Simulated assay, not measured.
Amino acid sequence: MLDIHQLKVLTEVARTGSYTAAATSLGYTQPAVSYQMRQLQQAVGTPLVVKVGRGLRLTETGRSLVQHADAIFSVLRAVDQEVSSQVARGGGLVRMVAFQSSCVTLVPELVARLRRLHPEVRVTVTQAEPVEARHLVRTGEADLGLLCNWENEDLPEGEATMRRVELMTDRRCVLMPEDDPMAAQETVDLASLASRDWVMESFRDRFLAACTNLGFEPRIVATMDDVSAIQALVAARLGISLVSEMALSAHVAPGLVYRPLRQWPLRRTYALLWPDMASVPAVMTVLEEIRGIAAGLRRPPPG
């Protein structure tokens, strides 16, 4: 019989890459972690980790067991949530994690709807980029995540065993002053912007790679991760920017316009959760409201 505490130690060893780091994370001593791992490997009858340099690597059996352990922990969290919801007469707390654009569009409308239609359901929200958000959902630190990726990307690692609910797509847009020469075009080609100054977000690897493929290095004059700050700097004519259509649907500063970037993949927004969490009434209420909000979010006119 597998021990739930030993499985927890295994998943933490897999996440941190060492017994020492796992012990620190769990609040155990290093010998205690070693003992739990020895007991688990004896119960399974085969090694679960092997040493690689100064670190550890999971064996094939270890990887399989970690996947099953994640699913087991998900079931336990779902049961805990469901019992809590029943005690609260259909209510409950849903811990959400969401990426930046959704925090200024989907999330505020969700909170308003819950207060109006489902006052017994409460949410907490943490902003995080998709990689971190995926980790928080997988480890049970969040019940539901709002994530995004590009339509031409493969399924992100770690999502194969989880439930993914597609919500909407939006475009990448060039934000500029309304009197900019490019504002007369319906869509903008990135190559035509090679000589421009840019106000960009920190996460811009795809943008930089696209510029490199077109043979130029963009002049980035400011790095900002706040949409309002980006708009203020573009309005001040420090440079132009690339901003998601979703973020711009919430607000566009006076004097600015945006045009979709030509031949750029659509961005997909989706909800991510463990399948068992879908049986929790509070989580399903939140998910259904998000789906309704996303379905009603129409693309605003670009001008």
Rank of each mutant, 00 (worst) to 15 (best):
G292C: 06
L273Q: 09
E166D: 12
S249Y: 05
Y28M: 15
R298F: 14
A71L: 13
A278H: 10
A14Y: 01
L110F: 08
E141Q: 15
H118S: 14
L136V: 14
D225P: 03
L261S: 04
Q42N: 13
R164K: 14
M1Q: 15
G55M: 14
E151M: 12
L248T: 06
E151R: 13
D170W: 03
F207G: 00
M176R: 05
A21S: 15
E288I: 00
R267M: 14
V188Q: 01
G239L: 04
P254I: 00
S241M: 08
A23Q: 09
G296N: 11
R134A: 07
D226K: 14
T161S: 10
D276A: 15
S102C: 07
L175E: 05
P260H: 08
V199A: 07
R54E: 15
Q100H: 15
P119H: 12
L106R: 03
A247C: 11
V199K: 02
E151T: 14
A236N: 13
M96G: 00
G27M: 06
S84Q: 10
E166M: 11
H68P: 10
W150Q: 14
L56M: 07
A229N: 04
R38H: 15
V257S: 03
Q36K: 10
L117N: 12
T126F: 13
T124N: 12
G158S: 06
L76M: 10
V83F: 09
Q6K: 02
S195H: 14
A294T: 01
L65V: 04
A282F: 09
G140E: 12
Y28N: 12
M200I: 05
L2K: 02
W150P: 05
A160V: 00
S85L: 07
L93G: 02
H5L: 09
V221R: 10
V121C: 03
L167D: 02
G55P: 12
D179R: 01
T269Y: 15
Q30S: 08
A43C: 09
S34V: 06
C148G: 07
